[in-house]
């Protein structure tokens, strides 16, 4: 499908990745418009449920992104997030979601350039693997 534009839901932490996205914007960097940013106070508050809902609603990919390990504004929220993503990455492939559809990254507040790069990479990867099964099939 040539005109396939993946939809990506990104849960980004207020202190690092959201700030990086802001920086990318104010620096006039361009990145794909496929990303729907949802600002959360910390990746540690992203319940696995949020990711599951997004994927079942037909998001082609979900990104969770926060501060680098050791830099969490709440000391250790990102370590907790990492365990939850590990859990989801164990469950989701068992029901047919490709590993690539869920990504965890650490993007610091000053990494505007890196933010734009990662968004481009993510869109390329998801464009390649195609539409999510949740979009194509009836989900009860």
């Amino acid at each position: 499908m040539e005109d396939f534009e993946p939809v990506i839901v990104a849960f980004v932490c207020n202190w690092c990745t959201y700030t990086a996205a802001d920086l990318a914007g104010t620096s006039r960097l361009s990145y794909p418009k496929n990303i729907r940013l949802i600002r959360v106070m910390c990746t540690g508050m992203v319940d696995p449920q949020y990711v599951i809902k997004a994927l079942l609603e037909g998001a082609d990919g979900v990104l969770v992104s926060g501060c680098h390990p050791g830099d969490c504004h709440y000391i250790n929220g990102n370590y907790k997030a990492r365990r939850r993503i590990k859990l989801l990455k164990t469950i989701l492939p068992q029901i047919g979601f490709e590993q690539e559809r869920l990504k965890l990254t650490w993007i610091g507040a000053s990494d505007g350039i890196r933010f734009a790069e990662i968004m481009r990479e993510l869109v390329d990867q998801l464009t390649e693997i195609g539409q999510s099964q949740a979009k194509l099939k009836m989900v009860i």
Binding site: R83, I85, L87, K89, L104, W106
Partner: peptide
Amino acid sequence: PPLSVFEKDEFLEVAQT
């Protein structure tokens, strides 16, 4: 319970750096 604790250096492969 695994989700009540964490280690600093674990599951490094889960996050893209």
